[in-house]
Design a protein around this nucleic acid. Structure first.
Length: 323
DNA sequence: AAGTGTTTCAACCGCGTTCGT
DNA sequence: GACGAACGCGGTTGAAACACT
């Protein structure tokens, strides 16, 4: 039995909304609320399907929508959250309350994705593209091993994220005090992650110590403190691979502090963003480009602008208080 | 000024999930 | 628990705006 159409297709208008239609929809919702979207068009005197009305309202007519150019802070937030959540636009939109998921999605696809790609960063993985590595490239096997480790890490990370989403939804439905995302996410990361998944191949140094003051550990929350000696892929090797140095702030990364996200996590992808100026100039983004410093090379005007742009984003990230 | 290519973004489509019976 | 209806989400489309030649 096939799905019935969302509405009577015959006689319903499609395409761009006219000001008159907008006015009708707006007036009706302001007076009655939207109620059932399916029933709304008839009541409001619109020749549209309910789905179209809902979309028009949520993406355009809603009074709390902020339109216009995205701010640098918003861009930064989108990039951060996309790195964390992927293409979950509605989830990302909850972090930018005045922006719609559609708008964010469009902005990502038309601006941010291209910008990252242009800078040599894979917009899907938020990691440097390594296509330049030829079959005979030096250190190929090492790089492959690194990538494998990173894939494992990514897998575990995604798994944890999925769990976070489930948990946060659960908290919301049980009406517990729930800080708004991303604080919600960070809060969950802080204390809730359980990566003892059968699919996870990562080894953790489970210290069981929420203080986690060992500066050699690279912790991600109070219960997960990664031993640098075990997690080399995220340490020296990854630094070599990525070409920038991962910050290790010791206690600031763990315990009751969520600043790992601002300081550590963002050092990951914003570090890459910053490093992308190097990637632009050098086809070997995964090669010998260690100890790269921002602004270490000469570029054309666009590159300079980009570098300054992402530098400012990094500054924002690192200077802003925990969300 | 005209033609062509590119970019942008509002809107649509189809699918998965949730809700009510 | 099964079923259908409604909702919400993400991917995609296509017309309008813009840039370039």
């Amino acid at each position: 039995m096939g799905r019935s159409p969302c509405c009577e297709k015959v006689g319903l208008k499609k395409g761009p909304w006219t000001p008159e239609e907008d006015q009708k929809l707006l007036a009706y919702i302001e007076e009655h609320g939207h109620g059932s979207w399916r029933a709304l068009p008839a009541k409001a005197g619109l020749q549209r399907c309910g789905k179209s009305c809902r979309l028009r309202w949520t993406n355009y007519l809603r009074p709390d929508i902020k339109r216009g150019k995205f701010t640098m802070q918003e861009e930064q937030t989108i990039i951060q959250l996309h790195a964390l959540l992927g293409n979950r636009w509605s989830a990302i939109a909850t972090h930018l309350p005045k922006r719609t998921d559609n708008e964010i999605k469009n902005y990502w696809n038309t601006h941010l994705k291209k910008r990252l790609a242009k800078m040599g960063i894979d917009p899907v993985t938020h990691k440097p593209k390594c296509d330049a590595l030829g079959p005979g490239a030096d250190g190929q096997s090492k790089s492959a091993a690194n990538l494998s480790h990173m894939a494992q890490w990514e897998s575990a990370r995604l798994e944890a994220e999925a769990r976070l989403v489930r948990e946060s939804k659960l908290r919301t439905t049980t009406n517990q005090l729930s800080p708004p995302p991303p604080l919600e996410v960070l809060h969950a990361l802080h204390g809730k992650i359980d990566l003892e998944s059968p699919t996870s191949t990562l080894n953790y140094a489970d210290t069981g110590n929420s203080n986690c003051t060992n500066a050699n550990l690279v912790p991600f929350n109070s219960r997960m403190c990664y031993d640098d000696s075990e997690m080399k892929f995220f340490g020296k090797q990854q630094e070599d691979l990525l070409g920038f140095q991962i910050e290790r702030n010791g206690p600031a990364f763990c315990g009751g502090d969520i600043s790992w996200f601002a300081a550590g996590q963002t050092a990951g992808f914003t570090g890459l963003l910053l490093d992308s100026s190097e990637a632009q100039n050098s086809s070997d983004c995964c090669g010998e480009s260690s100890n790269v410093q921002v602004g270490s090379c000469e570029e054309d005007g666009d590159g300079e602008e980009n570098r300054n742009y992402w530098n400012s984003i990094l500054n924002l990230v690192n200077s802003s208080p925990p969300l």
